[in-house]
Simulated assay, not measured.
Amino acid sequence: MAVNSRPSRPVLGQNQYGKAENRVVRIVRDGATHHIKDLNVSVSLSGDMDDVHYSGSNANVLPTDTTKNTVYAFAKEHGIESAEQFGIHLARHFVTSQEPIHRARIRIEEYAWERIETSGEARHSFVRKGQETRLAQITFDGETWEVVSGLKDLVVMNSTNSEFWGYVKDTYTTLPEAYDRILATQVSGRWRFNWTGDEETAPDWDTSYEQVKKHMLEAFAETYSLSLQQTLYAMGARIIDNRGEIDEVRFSLPNKHHFLVDLEPFGLKNDNEVYFAADRPYGLIEATILRDGCEAHIPVDLTNL
């Protein structure tokens, strides 16, 4: 019997397209007082896109240039109340206005500005805040919403109340036990809301963000730490315990090591005063904290969010 050796056609898998990193700055002029929203918006769309991959037919393709224009038009038409709300407007528009598009994912970075206060009446000067970058990802498939907020590059430090000892030791262990050390990290965190899409029950996104950050920082500052893992859990647990709108928190915390400098060659005693700040290699501690009964949705690799 002859064997059919005709090769099968490769099958298209998961795919999406869109316009990445649309930088939009929205100014609201309230007389002499101005307000700024500064966003970096990435749009990703998926749906009935087989033909464009197999044959090059663009019949179902909304141009990425159009998605870019939509971001800017919506900044004018809807304003930017918050990163989350702006992303919700965009995701709903793309899925409900274009039949071939079944799912929209909007990723947003928000850059904060502080007003420069002067003795004059004008209040239109700002300085870029140098703390964290605020993040949001909104996903909508026509029925189900998922809103994940977060932040990155928030650098924090405890100059005491941290220890690290009692760990496993083997032939290659050289690290001395520490009973009073600096604990520093650069927080990358995401948290998933349990909001289902009802506008009347939507959280106050800005208030929620500020409160999450507040609980995160308070837990970091108030936890007497025997390990960075313990501190991470305390940060996530305090958010879950205090913010009922959130079901999942994920942190990625690099341990920004500070090592005591040996000053004995110079005849000096180093009583936990002078440290060498090492940028690499670094310990990387990651974990998810969940509300009891909930399943994890946030990817382990936060760079993919």
Score class of each variant (00 low, 15 high):
Ala287Ser: 15
Glu114Ala: 14
His34Lys: 09
Glu264Asp: 15
Ala278Gln: 14
Ser188Tyr: 00
Leu284Tyr: 02
Trp113Phe: 13
Gln230Ala: 07
Ala287Met: 08
Ser42Cys: 08
Val300Ile: 11
Thr201Gly: 01
Asp30Met: 11
Ser159Tyr: 10
Asn60Lys: 05
Leu290His: 06
Leu260Asp: 07
His35Ile: 11
Glu114Pro: 00
Asn304Cys: 11
Gln85Ser: 11
Glu143Cys: 10
Gly142Phe: 04
Lys256His: 05
Thr223Arg: 01
Pro7Phe: 10
Gly283Tyr: 07
Ile36Thr: 05
Leu302Ser: 01
Thr64Cys: 09
Lys169Asn: 06
Glu286Leu: 04
Ile240Gln: 00
Asp51Pro: 06
Arg250Pro: 04
Gln229Val: 07
Arg250Val: 09
Phe276Gln: 14
Glu273Lys: 15
Val24Trp: 03
Asn58Gln: 08
Asn158Ser: 14
Ala278Trp: 07
Val24Ser: 02
Lys169Thr: 13
Thr288Ser: 15
Leu305Met: 10
Thr303Asp: 14
Arg280Phe: 10
Glu199Lys: 06
Ser227Val: 00
Leu12Glu: 08
Asp204Thr: 08
Pro63Ile: 05
Gly87Met: 06
Asp206Arg: 15
Leu135Arg: 04
Ser252Lys: 09
Leu268Pro: 04
Ser5His: 13
Glu210Thr: 10
Thr133Ile: 15
Trp165Phe: 14
Thr144Ser: 12
Ile182Asn: 10
Glu84Arg: 03
Gln14Leu: 14
Ser252Arg: 05
Val24Arg: 04
Gly244His: 13
Pro299Phe: 02
Glu146Thr: 13
Thr64His: 07
Ala73Val: 06
Glu84Ser: 04
Leu45Asp: 03
Thr223Asn: 09
Val11Phe: 06
Asn58Glu: 12
Thr174Asn: 13
Gln211Pro: 01
Ala2Cys: 10
Val147Met: 06
His102Met: 11
Pro203Ala: 05
Asp271Trp: 04
Phe266Thr: 04
Arg103Ile: 07
Val127Ala: 15
Ala287Asp: 13
Ala178Thr: 14
Glu163Leu: 08
Asp271Pro: 03
Thr118Tyr: 08
Arg181Pro: 00
Asp198His: 02
Asp292Thr: 14
Asp48Ile: 02
Asp279Thr: 15
His215Trp: 15
Val61Pro: 00
Tyr275Trp: 15
Arg103Pro: 01
Leu217Met: 08
Ala184Thr: 01
